[in-house]
């Protein structure tokens, strides 16, 4: 009787495992995945409440006629390995940090263009690529502080945005 029960348990487990493997195989075709992705069309589009759209976080400073916006960034630059003197290393690292600070200001004020591409084969990511691009003209940015430690230069840069700059 014991052996019979043990045999029954083993057979049930084997059958369950076979059933599981069948499900996995069925889930592989891409067509089924596409059908799943298409389901949002059937559901009604999400419309956020009016109060949610109009509300603006109070912590974010707003550019108004009376209120200027101060933007502070910290640009970082590294000294090259092949420098002839510490002074040259500092100068090169500082210039790299300044360019980085300008980039950060441009990102905050104008924005970043982002492009992504993922290549997936047999449900495995083969190649993942993200490209970002920032392009801007910046005027009247000021360097507040410069620090240089262990080959890393950090530049604190500030820009003040006022409403008058955007008026015609």
């Amino acid at each position: 009787m014991r052996y019979f029960l043990l045999l029954l348990v083993v057979m049930t487990g084997t059958a369950f495992a076979a059933e599981q493997s069948d499900v996995t195989v069925k889930a592989r075709p891409a067509a089924e995945t596409t059908v799943i992705c298409a389901s949002p069309q059937e559901e009604p589009a999400y419309t956020p409440p009016v109060s949610q759209v109009t509300s603006v976080p109070k912590s974010e400073p707003l550019l108004t006629e009376t209120n200027n916006v101060h933007i502070t960034v910290y640009g970082q630059g590294v000294a090259p390995m092949t420098t002839t003197s510490p002074a040259q290393a500092y100068a090169l690292a500082k210039r790299a940090a300044i360019a980085d600070a300008y980039r950060l200001i441009a990102e905050k004020v104008k924005g970043v263009r982002v492009e992504g591409q993922d290549t997936i084969k047999n449900m495995i990511v083969k190649r993942s690529m993200v490209r970002t691009h920032v392009d801007a003209m910046i005027r009247q940015a000021n360097i507040i502080e410069t620090t240089f430690k262990d080959g890393l230069c950090e530049v604190e840069m500030e820009i003040v945005l006022s409403r008058s700059q955007f008026s015609l």
Partner: peptide, 19 residues
């Protein structure tokens, strides 16, 4: 450079992350 900052500077930054 402090004088240059008062004029208009152009910044062009491209970044690529692959794997």
């Amino acid at each position: 450079f402090s004088l240059m900052q008062q004029t208009t500077l152009h910044i062009d930054h491209r970044e690529k992350n692959i794997d």
